[in-house]
Design a protein around this nucleic acid. Structure first.
Lengths: 154, 154
DNA sequence: GGCTAATAGTTAATATGTTAATAAAAAGGA
DNA sequence: TCCTTTTTATTAACATATTAACTATTAGCC
């Protein structure tokens, strides 16, 4: 193992405990996976967050900006800029909500819908390929371990 | 499982394949772990990257900025700003390298050294606690699965 | 109905990241 | 030695994120 460290999690590579090694490997694996997804999505000039917005709007048709922020776990302020950039690319629109004039409704444009419909099957295949080094059983094992960390915190 | 999606990886929650569930859970678990580390480090006003810089300089004493960038896997341009902010806090210095006047040498200040020496044992304990929901065997299993994804890509 | 609270979105300031262009210095080949 | 190429750091322009302050609107209580 070389001395590169993940920018994602604190550098624990000099710690000789197993937990230290887990942090190191999680950061590493995550960085790796994020990179290859970024690379995949860059074909269409999309970031992960932009792709997630398109995916959410494809499933939900119309979402208030605050709902979008809640589902994406990002701040309302960030949604503003994200929607600015996505509408500059002609992929989404913001419409006034007649039922509540405080809120704006985000929707895909036809161009945005066509784009995400093109991407979805490729993204699905890509995901299968990324995790193909693990058998079905191992994938389920991984899910269980990840959930155990998250849901058994004291 | 609710409909929140990770901002880290493409939203695959409507996909019924196991690989789709793995992406979802990895993004989720990563987001969770990053959050609790960010929260932990915020006590000292540090981000993960800032903490990593201090940790690297604590181990290596002196590193050229380009070496720092290489080990952190971030661009040189980013190192410039990071060092600007860290030296404004009085935690690091940049010295001219007399052997190669193109490069600058980063070092911890006494204040930076004291800070990271204070943090290291707490970070170690914190890491043990974060992964304590998993047994030693499970932690090793997780490492193996994560590495398998990364190193068996076709 | 009218005052106060809360909610939704934007803006401003900042942190963290990128790539591309630039300046300065070093390396290397003729 | 001189010229070209490479390397190092910075700057500029941008994308993505945050919190805090602000505006507009709605909700809730009397």
């Amino acid at each position: 193992m070389d001395e590169n460290i993940s920018k994602k999690l604190p550098a624990y590579w000099w710690v000789d405990t197993t937990a230290g090694k887990v942090v190191l490997n999680m950061g590493d694996a995550l960085g790796f996976i994020e990179n290859i997804y970024d690379q995949f999505l860059s074909r269409w000039g999309l970031s992960q967050t932009k792709a997630n917005v398109l995916l959410l709007l494809y499933k939900n048709e119309a979402l208030a900006l605050w709902e979008l922020g809640e589902k994406l776990l990002v701040s309302r302020a960030n949604i503003t800029g994200l929607m600015d950039r996505l509408s500059k690319s002609g992929l989404v629109t913001r419409e006034i909500n007649p039922l509540d004039r405080r809120s704006l409704i985000a929707k895909l444009t036809p161009k945005g819908k066509m784009l995400i419909e093109e991407i979805i099957p490729l993204l699905k295949d890509f995901t299968e390929k990324v995790f193909s080094p693990l058998s079905e059983t191992e994938q389920e094992q991984l899910i269980k371990l990840l959930q155990k960390i998250q849901y058994n915190q004291k």
